[in-house]
């Protein structure tokens, strides 16, 4: 989602002010995406240029509503599904994959350390109220944001468990197909990256 799509989703037939869209956007996204007013107006300007919203002037203030083209663009966005390409590239995954190339013990060290850090984040999340909740957002939206963060941390932890399992109890059939790593170099941890 971009700000553009978020704003289209909030617009309807009733003309609204840009400021209302800003607060509506932040509430709908559970406080995870603060916007500045400038960003909102710039995006609305582009949407207007592209014919997706219609603007009118009332008492020196601009009000916006969605057009038919805007509705079509919005519909296409709701219908779009994530595509597999390019493959996910996240920092944690790449770090562990690189560590495996440096040797089993180093990889297990990295896995243990990362797992402990993710677990600590999850523990903190269990104990303190969510930032979303603290800011007085819609409790259901805030709970959904919390769920997403918990489930993601769970996924990372499970993946780290699986990596550990593969390293400590390798499946013999996987062993043979493995290309030998050319001269593992172990950096002094922390000294270079």
């Amino acid at each position: 989602m971009s700000v553009r799509e978020g704003l289209l989703a909030l617009l309807g037939d009733e003309p609204v002010h840009g400021y209302v869209l800003k607060t509506g956007f932040e509430a709908a996204t559970g406080g995870v995406w603060p916007l500045n007013v400038g960003q909102v107006y710039k995006t609305l300007e582009r949407l207007e240029r592209d014919g997706l919203v219609h603007a009118r002037e009332r008492q020196g203030q601009r009000q916006y509503r969605i057009t038919d083209d805007g509705l079509a663009a919005l519909g296409a966005w709701w219908d779009a599904v994530p595509d597999d390409e390019p493959p996910p590239r996240d920092e944690l995954m790449l770090k562990v994959l690189m560590a495996v190339g440096q040797g089993r013990d180093h990889a297990l060290d990295v896995i243990t350390k990362q797992r402990s850090a993710v677990m600590a984040q999850l523990q903190l999340r269990r104990r303190g109220p969510s930032t979303a909740r603290r800011r007085g957002r819609d409790p259901m939206v805030a709970a959904m944001v919390d769920d997403a963060l918990v489930v993601r941390a769970e996924a990372d932890l499970r993946w780290l468990d699986l990596c550990e399992e593969r390293l400590t109890h390798p499946d013999p059939s996987e062993e043979t197909g493995r290309r030998p790593v050319t001269r593992p170099r172990r950096g002094t941890r922390g000294a270079r990256s």
Partner: peptide, 16 residues
């Protein structure tokens, strides 16, 4: 389940 373990004051991980 990590989601349940995270309620604890201390999480101990075992292997072998």
């Amino acid at each position: 389940e990590p989601r349940y373990a995270a309620w604890a004051d201390r999480v101990v991980s075992m292997r072998d």
